[in-house]
Computed example of a mutant assay.
Amino acid sequence: MEATGHYRHWRTDLELVRSLGVQALRYGPPLHRVFEGPGRFDWSFTDDVVAQMQRLGIEPIMDLCHFGLPDWLENFQNPEVPDALAEYARAFAARYPAVRLYTPVNEMYVCARLSALEGAWNEQRRDEVSFVRAVRHQARASVLMMQAIARERPGAIFVNSESSEFYQACCPDGRIQDIATFENERRFLPLDLLYARPLGEQMREHVRRCGMPDAEYTWFMNQDVRRRAILGVDYYDWNEKVIDHAGSPRSLGELFGWTVIAGQYHARYRRPLMHTETNHMDAREGPRWLWRQWHNVQMLRASGVPVVGFTWYSLIDQVDWDVALRSPRGIVSPVGLFDLNRDPRITGQAYRHLVKMYSKELEGDPRIEDVLHASGTAVREEQEAVHA
């Protein structure tokens, strides 16, 4: 937000949102600036932004924790993180009662993987125990945050944004196939804990070996935060991977596509879906990628899956996004609908055209509350069937 100039140009940026014809915005208040310590908050920047959103008629989907923490909380190995983030979520909901849409912790799988398996972010570790611990703390934080917000704002709706992942074995080698099978199960671990879906035998034993107490696992299985939850499924052209002969994941590009991969997530969790992130690193290819993703959304909706939203990431270009902010190089990634001068890119023009073209057709959609009610009925029926 600093590197892209958003702190200086946030008013202009919100005007750009309205110029596109959209009425909702995924937005991440700067957690590290707001949450100064236990019971200490600086709301000055967020107060101004929220007030301007209300004046412009923009409904925010507040992204409370996006990949990082304030320095005083250190990193996701810290067992104090879940309770601290729950305190932040409760305070946020109390201060902004008009906000109804929240993402508690963004992309738990990606955050845990890059922080604790690949050594890039936060704790910068590279071991399975640290990965499982990061997942446990993020998933617990998400549950506690959702519960804290719901107590302050009973009508709140949660968009649990997660990266879609898929692993394909390169060959009929049994060892490679076993790695792909394990990775395809591990991708679901944070959401399984969040939505109280019992782990498979292999993953259950894996998290036990990595230090997850049985009592903590039981706690997760006894929570129920699904009823007000929309599952956000992000997709980029590197989300599908092949396990090569060395047993390492390599990007496959767009092989099956968002419809197939998101369909796997829907089949597992039976939640309404939202396409919560996508873009293309080549600005010239952006419009084609935009329309492909939109047609994927249409195809899944036509099959009867409730898809309630679609997001391009991001409004403006990013800086050092191509290396996942591993180092401050100052290189602009042209992924925005607008460049850093706030001039529209061709993808931005295509996005505005898409919104205009389909807005009337989508006006007939059921309200999100009605979609959630129908999904809640499905959850109850599923639970009754399991009990029977």
Rank of each mutant, 00 (worst) to 15 (best):
V319L: 02
R90C: 03
H137T: 08
R288K: 07
Q264T: 01
D127Y: 11
H387D: 07
H275V: 01
T347Y: 01
A98N: 03
A86G: 06
R186I: 13
R26Y: 08
Q223R: 15
E107R: 06
S164W: 07
Y109E: 14
E361L: 15
Q168Y: 13
N222E: 15
H32Q: 15
P38L: 03
L117E: 06
A98E: 06
P79D: 09
G309T: 01
L20Q: 05
S375Q: 04
S161F: 05
A388L: 11
G257N: 05
W43E: 05
E118M: 12
N341G: 14
R204D: 09
T103S: 12
Y358S: 10
M221D: 04
F256N: 13
W312T: 05
V323K: 03
V225D: 14
H6E: 13
K356W: 09
A215Y: 00
M203K: 00
W321L: 07
Q168A: 10
V22C: 03
G364M: 02
D343G: 06
D234F: 07
K356Y: 07
C65L: 02
R342Y: 01
D178M: 09
N106A: 09
A148S: 14
L252M: 13
G39E: 06
S19N: 02
W312Y: 11
R151S: 06
E254K: 11
T377R: 14
R140V: 04
I331K: 13
S164F: 03
G68L: 06
F35P: 12
Q298V: 10
